[in-house]
Amino acid sequence: MAAHRRSTDDPVWAKVLIIGLVLLFLGLVLVLPLAAVFAEALRKGLQPALEAISNPDALAAVKLTLLTAAITVPFNVVFGLCAAWAVAKHDFPGKSLLITLIDLPFSVSPVVAGLIYVLVFGLQGWFGERLIDHDIKIIFAVPGIVLATIFVTFPFIARELIPLMQEQGVSEEEAAVSMGASGLYTFWRVTAPNVRWGLLYGVLLCNARAMGEFGAVSVVSGHIRGLTNTMPLHVEILYNEYDFVGAFAVAALLCLLAIVTLVLKTALEVAQPAVRGRSGH
């Protein structure tokens, strides 16, 4: 039977043209950079690349990156759950303002995010002298890196959970409470099972950003090798020292992280279509 084009279908030539353009564009913008990272990392073979990532400075950077994520993600999970519970399950004046404020860090340049902590905790900052008196280092030290990372990833989990919990409404919680369940019990037994996939989705994206953050961390880190260098900062240092194989080898490691994130994210979207991402990360 000859295929007659329905009124919502596009002609075949248009389909081919659009798909072709999209593939060309995405290939140029997304695939090529990814391929370039691995090609540059392996330019001199596998051995130098492996050496670059097993170098003590690189390992220290990996460790710091993992540490930063290990603090940032749980912090944002707790905050996200609190914020979502307050916003999605209750009504109060100023609610939409609060949502906007939670989203605020998305609109702030990462460099400004780093700057604000320098202004607060830096040498000339509000608490600068007092911190020196007590020999506490925040800027150019790990706490500053963690703070800056928390700032840039701040909205990730909350903004994933708020719309999800709003959609689910309050009737299930009200039913649980009416049967005598406590708040915590209601949360664990009723709310948490309903939002766990959305939470996981937020954790995934939050983690990727936490491990990959560059601008904010760069401002507060001080770039001390082996001490305050995260993986992205280590990439920068090696690159600026013209150690391209080293830079791209560590970058390739970060690419793998990104790929794992995307695979998990896609798997989650296929398995749980309800958590399909919300825009604006």
Binding site: L205, M231, P232, A258
Partner: peptide, 8 residues
């Protein structure tokens, strides 16, 4: 671009 570190 959401998942890949910007420096990379």
């Amino acid at each position: 671009p959401f998942a890949l570190p910007t420096a990379v």
